[in-house]
């Protein structure tokens, strides 16, 4: 304490010197996650005798990373204002079903159907946000209710039936590769970059984070917290729409169970990625890396023919471990200061 005190006005003149910047980078949770990801990837490659690097395995690895990444971001956007969105998973399924219906039964061309899915996602998200703001009911409960409703709607599109062969172009896109990487994954990366840009550089994005970080300070600075809440939910819905489009492209067939297994992973990725539930902090890179690591566990399971359920066990242990180590670190640093 005393050392910082002395430097009140004089200190921190020059931009941080290179070594300290390096140290700061090393200390971030993103760096830890990236290291983990690389180590995991290398270990997996070595133990499978390079099988990981074969074109097919690698492409599959990245292709199935796209949706978990986007869905994690969809949850992260709402966590940024300290709220939750339980409807991300079913909304993804609903948008996918509606888009498939539009192509097969309404005869819409694929690009329009894609647009419809995105708009639908954003509109439902907007509805969530407006409900939260106008009823002042906890977002957890509001999205619990809308999740139940959307669950029913999702089923209502085509009952238990499956849609397939909706668009040759879309499916081609799902299987296509560019520079050895699946196009769906590249799209997911592009979307992630946009989300990053939104939070890092745009005025609404910064206002949203300010509302999440300290609502009172934001209000004193003329930021509308209500607008931030609505925006966050709408954006979350839009990202669920993106996830729906990616699902349509890569899977080739959709039914009413799409999205059922996305809700819990949508929380796992941001939480492992270092996003605080209290709001105000986002990490697009951390969330993406966390999705990457979860995917590694998944692939390892497939490669070694381990029981599928080990994946959940390990993910659970990782989430708990990350959270606990964070709490312990905070406690230690408080003690030492």
């Amino acid at each position: 304490m005393t050392s910082t005190v002395e430097k009140t006005t004089r200190a921190a003149t020059a931009p941080a010197a290179p070594p300290s910047r390096l140290r700061r980078t090393v200390r971030t949770s993103e760096f830890t996650l990236a290291t983990l990801a690389v180590i995991g990837f290398v270990a997996l490659t070595l133990t499978t005798d390079g099988n990981m690097l074969s074109a097919g395995t690698l492409a599959a690895f990245f292709r199935f990373l796209a949706v978990p990444m986007i869905i994690g971001l969809a949850q992260m956007v709402v966590l940024a204002i300290g709220q939750m969105n339980l409807s991300v998973g079913v909304l993804t399924g609903f948008c996918a079903m509606v888009a498939a219906w539009a192509m097969l039964e309404a005869g819409l061309p694929a690009p329009l159907a894609v647009l419809a899915a995105l708009l639908l996602g954003a509109a439902v998200g907007l509805g969530n946000g407006l409900l939260v703001v106008f009823t002042r009911i906890n977002a957890f409960i509001v999205t619990l209710a809308t999740m139940t409703i959307i669950d029913g709607l999702r089923y209502g599109v085509n009952g238990p039936g499956t849609y397939q062969d909706y668009s040759a172009g879309l499916e081609e896109l799902g299987q296509a590769s560019l520079l050895g990487l699946p196009v769906v994954f590249l799209i997911a990366c592009a979307v992630a970059a946009m989300v990053w840009f939104f939070f890092a550089r745009t005025v609404p994005g910064r206002h949203l984070l300010a509302s999440g970080g300290s609502p009172f300070a934001a209000r004193l600075s003329g930021v509308s917290n209500d607008r931030s809440i609505v925006l966050a939910h709408a954006l979350s819905g839009l990202l669920a729409g993106v996830a729906a489009v990616l699902t349509l492209a890569q899977s080739g067939s959709v039914n009413a169970t799409i999205g059922d297994d996305l809700l819990l992973p949508s929380f796992a990725a941001p939480i492992i990625g270092g996003v605080a539930l209290a709001g105000g902090v986002v990490s697009v890179l951390g969330t993406s890396l966390a999705a990457f690591i979860v995917r590694l566990v998944d692939v390892a399971q497939a490669q070694f023919a381990i029981n599928r359920r080990w994946v959940d066990l390990i993910v659970g242990a990782v989430v708990l471990g990350v959270v606990l180590s964070g709490a312990i670190r905070a406690k230690l640093s408080r003690r030492s200061s």
């Binding site: 550089r201 745009t202 005025v203 609404p204 910064r206 206002h207 984070l209 300010a210 970080g213 300290s214 009172f216 300070a217 934001a218 004193l220 600075s221 003329g222 930021v223 105000g280 902090v281």
Partner: peptide, 27 residues
């Protein structure tokens, strides 16, 4: 204290009227 802790000094100072071009923060 009425600052957003995760934001930079510059951003906290300018938060009430973030200078922007087309909605993008002019850093």
């Amino acid at each position: 204290r009425n600052l957003v802790p995760e934001f930079s000094i510059a951003e906290n100072i300018a938060l009430q009227h973030l200078p922007n071009r087309l909605g993008m923060v002019d850093r």
